[in-house]
């Protein structure tokens, strides 16, 4: 079984590209078909909370940290939580360098930044692994495993039907207060308890759409209205199709998609 990945992202309208605070990482290069049976395939996606400071850096650290730990990071809840706490230790080093760098530039941390520095950075995270396992009968079973904190989402489409929506099923579940990983949260038990996991069986011609909350809420709203949002997203892969920026700009302008950093990873299996 083979799979290929396409990734798309766009910063929030009215901001600049360097203010994009989502992050994503994959174990394999985009657009290059990959045999899942050999080494599996992994994706990590994160959305830095806009009200926190240095959220984009924290999101980038999280995806880099977790992508390097696929597939074992998905073995158990306490393993995932262990990696989350380990990420906070790496963050402490990075933040120390950041503060020193700001001072060296003559731009020390200001009074209005300090309370947010004290609280740490916040981000959601979703980690997905695809693998093929040999079975006793000589066949094989292809699966995806997902684990995360917060409202990054995975949609599994088969035969033109949405068969799994994880972790949200209803667009109204998306709020401005999702669960978040905090760069100062060392509570392994709490993270293990609050994370959500799901396993799905993969078949040839399946599609997975992994996205941050604005795209996810839009996807579920379109699906709820009996639409097939995946048909629009599949056009992004076509040479004569719209660009992701075209699509997102149009949906934002119509009010169908919230104006927020937007990220989509499309995995096609065949």
């Amino acid at each position: 079984m083979r799979a290929s990945i396409s990734s798309y992202h766009l910063h929030k309208g009215g901001g600049t590209e360097d203010e994009y605070e989502d992050a994503f990482a994959t174990t394999h290069e985009a657009q290059v078909p990959k045999d899942i049976a050999a080494n599996g395939l992994g994706i990590a996606i994160s959305d830095g909370a806009s009200e926190s400071i240095l959220a984009g850096r924290w999101a980038r650290l999280l995806v880099r940290h977790f992508i390097a730990a696929i597939p074992e990071v998905l073995d158990a809840r306490d393993v995932f939580a262990h990696y989350a706490v380990q990420a906070t230790e790496r963050w402490e080093v990075l933040i120390g360098e950041y503060i020193a760098g700001r001072a060296a530039e003559g731009r020390p941390i200001q009074w209005y930044e300090q309370p947010k520095m004290d609280r740490g950075a916040f981000a959601t995270l979703l980690v997905v692994s695809l693998s093929v396992t040999p079975q006793d009968d000589g066949g094989s079973l292809a699966t995806w495993v997902a684990a995360g904190i917060g409202d990054c989402a995975l949609f599994h489409v088969r035969d033109n039907r949405l068969i799994t929506s994880f972790p949200m099923n209803d667009p109204s579940e998306f709020t401005s207060s999702p669960d978040l990983l905090n760069s100062k949260n060392h509570d392994r038990e709490l993270i293990a308890e609050r994370m959500k996991t799901h396993v799905g069986i993969l078949r040839q011609k399946d599609d997975l759409y992994i996205c941050t909350d604005a795209v996810a809420a839009w996807f579920l709203e379109q699906a709820e209205r009996q639409g097939h949002p995946w048909e629009i997203l599949n056009l992004l892969d076509a040479t004569d199709g719209p660009t992701f920026a075209d699509l997102v700009d149009e949906e934002r302008a119509s009010g169908r998609m919230r104006n927020d950093d937007s990220t989509l990873i499309h995995v096609t299996v065949w």
Binding site: A49, S50, E51, S176, D187
Partner: peptide, 10 residues
């Protein structure tokens, strides 16, 4: 007031 995703603890 909402200005984006809130930074709230788990």
């Amino acid at each position: 007031l909402d200005i984006g995703t809130r930074a709230s603890d788990l």
